[in-house]
Computed example of a mutant assay.
Amino acid sequence: MRAGPTNSLMDVAGLRVGHAHRVGDGYRTGTTVVLAPAGGAVAGVDVRGAAPGTRETELLDPRNLVERVHAVVLTGGSSYGLGAACGVVDRLADAGIGYPVAGGVVPIVPAAVIFDLGRGGTFRAVPDATLGTAAYDAAAPGTAPFPQRAVTPDGGMDALPPAGAEVPWGREGTAALGTVSGSIGAGTGAAAGGLAGGVGTASVILPGGATLAALVVVNPAGSVLDPADGTLAGTRYGLPGEFPLRPPAKHEVEAWHPQHEPSFNTTIGVVATDLTLTKAQCGKLAGVAHDGLARAIRPAHTMTDGDTIFALATCARPAPGHDTLQDALAAAADVFSRAIAHAVLAATGREGAPAYLDVFPSATEKRS
């Protein structure tokens, strides 16, 4: 198998991703929006963590009415951050996108949150509808095509920051960075077992030509490291050449003693494909993606994690046969593990949450 052209969720044609964040003045948090094609995407969900913060997940039960969603919101702010979805709903409604009812439309926008309260210094400095609107605007058609650019608060355009770079525009900003991993959007304040967490994304082209991809916000209570040698656990599922790393030096592993914060965390994400799937099959796809989460994070699905994965099917390709569906399910776990590894590897370190390569610099060194 091989990655798609951008190795990101946006390799699934029709999906768009936008991020918005606030850093400073007590804030370190953000919101990420995944926009479906105009007609929506068939969706499912699987919630495995014992402390989820979610919106509209019951609609995705195959027994319930709605077949398609119009966006998915991933956000910081714990339960307070669910307000970010309101800004996305308003934007979709203004565009006439939603489930048709008498008198108008009702946009269907499921959402899930991570716990990042207080990581910028102020407990209630959380995403709101304004931040959701900003993330939507960054994702909406009409933002810069590939190579994408970062949209600054004054409306200007900055060069795309390199992976792992601090987002360059200060307190507040939005970014049409759907192909980039790191400390952006909902992952701005994320932490991963003492390391900096963030947003990660990856994709794969299946043998029959279909695309499967994932986007994840990595903020677990558990560790993202292989306990045997300190490597990023998710990298073992990488495609050839995807992660040019080696196990870090033994003395670096022995010296790593992460700070232990209160374990209210959560990893959330989206796995998507261009295949035609039913709601039930989307639910299964999300469930198998949780296997990838558990391979890359240890332990996962704890009492204080709210681990939630949404699955989207754009239905641009025909319904899969048995073998293609099996390929998609198998790939869902691997692509989610890879996205987790990209998130941690690209995250920007900060006080109390260093970057992986700040702690284990020898992981990129050549040794005889």
Rank of each mutant, 00 (worst) to 15 (best):
G156D: 00
A111C: 11
T122Y: 11
V88S: 04
A144S: 14
L117H: 13
A150T: 02
G83A: 15
L160K: 05
P107W: 09
D116I: 15
I114N: 03
I97M: 09
G132R: 02
L177M: 13
A150Q: 02
A84V: 07
T152I: 01
V106P: 00
P145E: 07
G103I: 12
V106W: 01
D94C: 03
R91N: 03
G83N: 15
T152Y: 03
G187N: 13
P162Q: 06
T122D: 15
G189E: 03
T188Y: 11
P145A: 13
A93F: 01
A84G: 11
G189N: 05
V113G: 05
G132N: 06
D158W: 14
A95K: 13
G187I: 10
G173I: 00
G142A: 03
A186T: 07
G170A: 11
G96M: 12
V106Y: 00
V167I: 08
I114E: 06
G164A: 06
Y136T: 09
I184C: 01
T133I: 04
I114S: 09
A190E: 04
I114Q: 08
A129Y: 07
A135L: 08
P127G: 10
G155I: 02
V151H: 00
D154H: 03
G189M: 02
Y136R: 08
L160F: 04
I114H: 09
V151A: 00
G189T: 04
G83T: 14
P153A: 09
T152S: 06
I97L: 14
L117D: 15
G185E: 01
R119A: 05
R91L: 08
P110H: 11
I108Y: 02
L117F: 14
G132D: 07
E172C: 07
P162W: 03
